[in-house]
Simulated assay, not measured.
Amino acid sequence: MIGVDIVVVSRIEAAMKRHGERFLQRFLNEEEIALAQKTETAAGFWAAKEAVAKALGCGIGAELGFHDILLVKSPKGAPSFTLPPAIMQRYAITDTSLSIAHDGGFAIAVAAIETAASPASDEV
């Protein structure tokens, strides 16, 4: 399953100026806020969480909240995400991948989620 989201960086910047740290706390935890030193990174993180929700087909809401998705970076800066065990089990997730980019005033993210294959059907 694949999810994609794109956001205008200036929209995130305006929300950060208007609401300060409270805006970031709405969708990021403290570790993620520490990683998001630039507005472009915060915008990329917003897009990433939306992309994960879209890949799962549920969107951000009752089944999956912003804070259920934990974004991390490898020592080389590659993004990835984790989900709570209950969500991993509910969707039978076996592997995940995430890419985030920002350029020209936009941030985009693509999330790929692999799930356990459903049993083959005997029906023809």
Rank of each mutant, 00 (worst) to 15 (best):
F45I: 05
T82S: 11
P85L: 06
L98N: 05
A55V: 08
G57R: 06
F45A: 04
V52I: 05
L83P: 00
A62S: 15
T96C: 11
G44D: 00
E50F: 03
Y91H: 13
A42N: 03
I100W: 06
G59Q: 08
K76E: 15
V72P: 00
T94N: 08
A48E: 03
A42I: 05
L35V: 10
G57V: 09
A34P: 04
F45D: 01
A36V: 03
D95F: 05
E50R: 00
A92F: 09
S97A: 11
F66C: 06
V72T: 15
M88W: 04
L98Y: 04
K54Q: 01
L71N: 07
T39Y: 07
S74N: 04
I87L: 12
A43P: 00
S97M: 09
G77A: 08
G61H: 11
A48N: 04
I69M: 02
L56T: 00
Q37D: 14
H67W: 07
L98D: 04
P75V: 12
T39M: 09
E40F: 08
F66G: 03
P84R: 02
L98W: 02
K38Q: 14
Y91L: 07
A48Y: 00
K76G: 12
Q89G: 10
E50L: 00
T96W: 05
P79H: 04
L64Y: 08
K76Q: 15
S80G: 13
V72K: 15
P79F: 04
T94E: 10
I69Q: 02
A43T: 02
P79N: 05
A55H: 01
M88T: 10
P79W: 04
I100L: 05
A53P: 06
K49Q: 08
I60M: 04
L70W: 12
D95G: 14
A78S: 14
T39D: 10
L70I: 14
I87Y: 06
E40G: 09
L64C: 06
I93H: 04
S99T: 14
F81Y: 07
K38T: 14
G77V: 07
K54G: 01
L70F: 10
I69T: 03
Q89Y: 11
A47K: 01
A53C: 12
T94L: 13
A78Y: 12
G61M: 10
A51K: 00
L70D: 12
G77F: 10
A92M: 13
E63F: 11
A62P: 05
P79C: 07
F45T: 01
A92K: 13
I60L: 11
D68P: 08
P79K: 02
A42C: 11
I87M: 06
D95H: 14
Y91K: 05
K49R: 09
A62W: 11
A34G: 12
I87C: 08
H67A: 07
T94P: 04
I60E: 06
H67R: 07
F45W: 02
S80M: 10
P85T: 11
A36D: 04
G57Y: 06
I87G: 05
L35I: 07
V52E: 03
A34K: 14
L83K: 02
M88V: 13
K38H: 09
Q37L: 13
V52M: 01
